[in-house]
Simulated assay, not measured.
Amino acid sequence: MTDEVLVTHEDGIATITINRPDQRNAVNRAVSYGVCAAVDELDARDDLRVGILTGAGGTFCAGMDLKAFLRGEVTRVEGRGILGIAMTPPKKPLIAAVEGYALAGGFEAVLACDLLVAARDAKFGLPEAKRGLAAAAGGLLRLPRLLPPRIALELALTGEMVTAGRLDRYGLVNALVEPGEALAEAKRLARKIIANAPMSVAASKRVMVEQQDWTLEEMFARQAEITGHLLASEDAREGATAFAEKRVPEWKGR
C-alpha cells in the first residue's frame, strides 16, 4: 500500500483516504492501485462491512493527475478504471465522504460509490470537455441514471461545477453537512448499515444495482435467485428472535 492512500479499519468500517493534499488528491497510478487494493480488501474480509472513500486536506479528489498523464503514466487500473472502482465497484457498500472539490475522475469515483455525504460548500463537476477529453470513467454512463437527464447533460457539456446543495435538491446526496463533518457523518451512516444483517445488505445492494437492466418478465425470478436464501438463513431466525426478545441481533452472516 502506498502512503498516497491511507487505510484504517475500525468497527467494521474501512476508511480509505486519498492522501495527496498538495496535489488536490489528483489521481496518479499509485493512488488508483492503492484505492483498488483497499477496496479489494474490504470485499475479501468478513470483519469489514462498509467502506468510506474520502480525501485528505479538505479536498476529495480533483480527478486525474494531468501532469502524470502528460508523462505517460497510466492513472487507471487495467480492466477496472480509475481507482479500480469505475468499472468494478465493490460488492459491499461504499460511501463517498466529500469535502471541497470532487471533479472529473473524482466526481466519477463519487458516482461509483453507493451513498454520498457532502459538505455544504463542496463542489462537483465533469470538466473533461474543457480539456479535450470525455468523462469516460463512468460519468457519462452513471450521471444520467442518477440525475434528471437534462441536468446530467448540462454538467457534461458545459464542464461547469455544481454545488452540493444543487445535487442535494436532485436527490444525489444522502446527507448534506457542515464543512469538516463529512467523514464523521459518513461513519454514522456506515454504523447504521453495519447494524443490519450482512447477507441482507449484500443481497439488497446486488439486486438494486443489477435490476436496472432486468425486464419486467424476469425481474422477480432474478431477484429470487439473489435473495431466496435469506428466508432460510440463521440470520433470519436471529432477526425475528431478537425482535421478539427486544434485544440487539447477533449476526452470523449465514
Rank of each mutant, 00 (worst) to 15 (best):
L116T: 05
G34V: 03
A184H: 11
N28S: 04
G34I: 01
L189Y: 08
L133I: 09
R237P: 09
V50G: 06
C61M: 15
A135L: 04
A197M: 10
N196R: 15
K130C: 04
R169M: 09
W251F: 02
A221K: 09
A102V: 07
G72A: 08
T54V: 08
E160G: 06
A152P: 00
G34A: 04
E181H: 13
A104V: 00
V248S: 11
K130M: 01
A186T: 05
L42K: 06
S32P: 01
I18L: 14
T54E: 13
G253C: 06
S233F: 08
V27Y: 00
K192L: 15
G253P: 04
G34E: 10
I95N: 07
V173N: 00
K252E: 10
I52R: 08
G139D: 00
E108H: 00
D114V: 04
F243A: 12
A182I: 03
D114N: 10
E108S: 00
T241I: 09
E108P: 00
A240R: 09
L115N: 01
C113G: 01
M87S: 15
P127H: 08
M199Q: 11
L42V: 02
T54P: 11
A112S: 10
L146Y: 07
S233Q: 10
G12T: 11
R188D: 15
G34F: 04
A182F: 03
E160N: 13
G57W: 08
V5L: 05
K130N: 05
V162Q: 09
A240G: 03
A164R: 02
K123A: 12
D22L: 09
N19F: 12
R206E: 15
R188V: 14
V201Q: 01
D213I: 12
L140E: 15
I151K: 07
T15G: 11
K192T: 13
A156Y: 12
T241A: 12
A56H: 14
E217H: 06
P21D: 04
A129N: 14
H229Y: 12
A221W: 06
W251A: 02
K187I: 14
L94H: 08
T75C: 14
G72L: 08
I194V: 08
F60T: 10
R71M: 09
